[in-house]
């Protein structure tokens, strides 16, 4: 982006600076990304209780699944081991929930950022600012990912203590790599939801529906083999499915086959491209649609 100077002299009668007149936006302005991420993080850090709340609330949501597994299976389940390849179903579920926290954030937070700007009365000023919307979205996505990581790590640590599970840290680097690739692919998904939000304004029901369907398709507390065949195919189109399966293998087993790991990286790379293209197209279409109807700032 061309830098705008506050004290640049106006060069025409209307008082518009030459920089603004000659401004041509780039697809992504990384400086604006950083500014938006910093702004959102600064606000998030003003409410540390929120980060703690989001560390413990998911624990209360997934604990019923673990308790039900214990009630039905007792200490272990031969059937579970046969279909999943893992003996400890509690360790299996806890790591699944840890990864799913990021998916939840994509669905509920990234897309909702424009809604919050709207409530703050800053959406219209943001949209007339000479920065690409993509930069605003990416900035929001980065800040949400940082605060989610803090909450998710607290949740993982607490779960390990409560449920008495442990994970191998030998493969921490590939775990972080897969997690990051999944998060980047999910940004695209977040852009799609942001588009839905600027069109429907408060699609809490739609978001709830999407979240629950994605959750049912993702192998969070059960292996993908228990899903019907068609649902398995749909599940593989979600970045979370491949990421959860690989991270689980790395975290519980401490290692993964090289070929399997590389194919995960390749698949996630493809999903990043697909989700970003689809997400940005959806968002731009939604933005044009909303602007045409003049309902950008409407509630």
């Amino acid at each position: 982006m061309q830098r705008l100077s506050a004290d640049a002299p106006p060069n025409n009668q209307s008082g518009v600076s030459s920089e603004i007149v000659g401004f041509t936006p780039r697809t992504i302005d990384w400086n604006a990304v950083r500014v938006f991420a910093e702004k959102n993080l600064r606000i998030a850090m003003r409410y540390p209780a929120n980060i703690l709340v989001w560390a413990f609330l998911p624990l209360m949501w997934f604990a019923p699944y673990v308790l039900m597994m214990v009630a039905i299976g007792g200490g272990s389940s031969v059937h579970f081991t046969e279909i999943s390849g893992f003996e400890d179903f509690i360790a299996f579920a806890v790591i699944g929930w840890f990864v799913y926290t990021y998916v939840d954030t994509t669905i509920w937070s990234i897309g909702q950022n424009f809604r919050w700007e709207q409530f703050s009365g800053t959406l219209e000023p943001l949209f007339v600012a000479p920065v690409p919307r993509t930069s605003i979205l990416i900035g929001a996505a980065i800040s949400d990912t940082v605060s989610t990581s803090i909450s998710a790590l607290i949740m993982l640590g607490t779960s390990c203590i409560i449920f008495g599970v442990g994970y191998a840290v030998t493969a921490i680097v590939p775990i972080i790599l897969v997690l990051m690739m999944m998060v980047v692919a999910l940004f695209g998904f977040g852009f799609m939801i942001a588009g839905l939000i600027i069109v429907f304004k408060d699609p809490s029901v739609l978001t709830e529906l999407i979240d629950n369907v994605v959750f049912a398709l993702s192998p969070v507390s059960y292996p993908i083999q228990v899903l019907p065949r068609a649902a398995q195919v749909a599940a593989y189109a979600l970045p979370a499915t491949i990421a959860i399966m690989t991270i689980r293998e790395l975290a519980i087993g401490g290692a993964a086959e090289v070929v399997s790991f590389l194919s995960t990286i390749g698949a996630l790379g493809l999903l990043i491209v697909a989700f970003w293209v689809l997400g940005l197209l959806c968002f731009r279409y939604a933005e044009r649609w909303t602007k045409k109807r003049g309902s950008m700032g409407g509630f």
Binding site: A71, G73, F89, N212, V220, S221
Partner: peptide, 30 residues
């Protein structure tokens, strides 16, 4: 739509989880 779907989208993941652990409709432990 959500009102109609809600009971099932909450129940289905629980049933899938239970099925993964039990492997059938019966559970000796339960």
């Amino acid at each position: 739509l959500w009102f109609i779907a809600m009971p099932f989208v909450w129940l289905i993941p629980m049933l899938l989880t239970g099925n993964a652990v039990s492997g059938g409709p019966e559970s000796v432990n339960l």
